[in-house]
């Protein structure tokens, strides 16, 4: 990523998740999630769970809810494709679910392999019952994050917050 060093909007996301009592962070890394991954691993109150594939985080979210707590899954848009069948568990069980997706394959993408899932993220998530909210700019991240938190843990819906590639910055190739 060309501009992951600052990511002040990521601090905003982290603080709001923690304020909402999200205490389990699971992830497959992405440059756009760099700050969140650092923050959750530094936080002694948080369980940070690295995954081998994103679908593990979907199942983990169900288990964390059964146990009475809250989790978030951090992933890249390509990872959404790995989650689709597992999201049936969330839908049939009416589990609250929050995913935060850093988008690739859109604004300024230099790697054509990212284009397919970049295009398919919202359509596939919605097809399996996940509501999508999207933040285009740093200025709207806080508000959209709060909306996603309220919908996921207040209304107990399945929600993904999509962070646009314009926001996170296109990777240089």
């Amino acid at each position: 990523m060309s501009n992951t060093s600052g990511q002040p909007w990521a601090e905003e996301i982290y603080d709001r998740l923690r304020k909402a009592k999200v205490d389990t962070f699971c992830y497959v890394p992405d440059g756009g999630h760099k700050r969140l991954i650092v923050r959750c691993n530094e936080d002694p109150e948080v369980k940070a769970v690295p995954l081998t594939t994103e679908q593990e985080g979907v199942a983990l979210a169900a288990g964390v809810h059964l146990g009475g707590s809250r989790s978030v899954l951090l992933m890249q848009s390509s990872g959404v494709g790995n989650c689709i069948n597992m999201l049936s568990l969330i839908d049939i069980g009416r589990f609250p679910f929050l995913g935060i997706v850093t988008m690739r394959g859109e604004f300024g993408e230099g790697n054509p392999w990212q284009l397919n899932m970049g295009r398919a993220v919202q359509a596939t998530l919605e097809a399996v019952g996940v509501h999508c909210l999207r933040a285009e700019t740093a200025e709207e991240v806080a508000e959209v994050t709060q909306a996603a938190i309220t919908m996921a843990f207040g209304a107990e819906m399945a929600v993904c917050l999509l962070l646009s590639q314009r926001l996170i910055g296109a990777k240089a190739f």
Partner: peptide, 21 residues
């Protein structure tokens, strides 16, 4: 808690429950 689909998911449901309880 019995799964009825979502094949491959049971292990991580159990893991999430274990770390939470």
């Amino acid at each position: 808690f019995l799964l009825g689909g979502a094949m491959g998911g049971a292990a991580m449901v159990a893991a999430g429950l274990a770390i939470t309880q």
